[in-house]
Design a protein around this nucleic acid. Sequence first.
DNA 1: CGAAAGGTTGACACGTGTCAAAGTGGGTGG
DNA 2: CCACCCACTTTGACACGTGTCAACCTTTCG
Lengths: 220, 220
Amino acid sequence: MPLGLTNQEMKKIDDVVKARRRVKQGELLFSHGDLFTSLYAIRIGFFKSSVSSEDGREQVIGFQMTGEIIGMDGIVNDVHSCNAVALEDAEVCVLPFAHIESLARELPGLQHHIHKIMSREIVRENSVMMLLGNMRAEERLAGFLLNLVQRLHARGFSQSEVILRMTREEIGSFLGMKLETVSRTFSKFSDAGIIEVKQRYVRIIQADALKKILNLQRLN
Amino acid sequence: MPLGLTNQEMKKIDDVVKARRRVKQGELLFSHGDLFTSLYAIRIGFFKSSVSSEDGREQVIGFQMTGEIIGMDGIVNDVHSCNAVALEDAEVCVLPFAHIESLARELPGLQHHIHKIMSREIVRENSVMMLLGNMRAEERLAGFLLNLVQRLHARGFSQSEVILRMTREEIGSFLGMKLETVSRTFSKFSDAGIIEVKQRYVRIIQADALKKILNLQRLN
DNA sequence: CGAAAGGTTGACACGTGTCAAAGTGGGTGG
DNA sequence: CCACCCACTTTGACACGTGTCAACCTTTCG
């Protein structure tokens, strides 16, 4: 909320944001079919969001971390269409959407902020579609790693070291590839000296090499 | 706008919606880097939206038709991040976003409507991610065709016949496959008696068969 | 300490990409 | 108004990246 607000206005927002909810590792924050009432602002922890097809296949549509907002899929039909699972013990602010809307009518800055958050999600998904539609395994994984460390870095963490919160299978689901291919591609990067991998631990040695893989795709 | 509004309120909305813009076939409504000022409601015509990577590859992220709203990608950074091209002569309503926002503060129904539109776009992209990440060529094309005729049918057109407005290459870009694979998959469906194809003309003979291909994916 | 879950690696299969050639249709200029 | 041309589509042969299946290794947790 980076906006010039009076104390009174800040207080109104604080009131909406009061409720907290803890979600243990592996538990659902919400799932497909749940009534939509609120958005959630992640305070602590790491989530994955996914949709599933009628025949049971899962597609991870994103990984969310501290400061990000989830639940916007539920607005259109008053029912959530995707699942949100905590990948580690987590805590969220519950933001009752009806309150948000009424507050947004009073506070133009808040209103615009909400529009931006939804637009950002649309733009993010656009770039995931590029990744899924146009890129090969190496490019996908390079893009995934760079995006992940960039977001972690923005939150004060290392830009070269990560402990992954998700399995190879979940990474693969997100990137549209099988877990074996994820594992093999990690190994390939490791053999090339671009990263160091040991299970969930990943250290990026040559970020430039990853960027190169991401951009100059078809030139190898 | 399916909402109980007074005449006065309707008039305010009409004022915002007054401006029109014509876009000829092949022309851009907006493109990557353009300043964002407005959303656009399609009155007539058929559009494709796409993003492009730094090395020039294009990913079609959607096809939009009458009644749909485009341009929401621009809100987050005040700059459009994707391109919108008319696939046939088209006309849109220009909806200046600042006006929309101020009006939405007065009219809760309009406000919620806007949130729904953005949420619907997020949900749509979720299902495209499922398609790109989990499905094979036949399933993708089946899903594409069913979605297309369903939307056309909702607008009063036939639910079994379509004249495609886009090339095989554009379909392929959207579905994450090459144009030859699109063509081959059309032929395969045609050989199976599921559809009739002649260039841009497609007639769906067995919608059930398409639905079956879409759901029972890995059971062939 | 043992079992279960997750990760790595190998061999092979298969779907889709690539490259090439030929067919089709619509728009435009003569 | 017709014919040519160009963009688009179809189809074939082959290549290659990723999926599949299986075995084995590592780590975590009860």
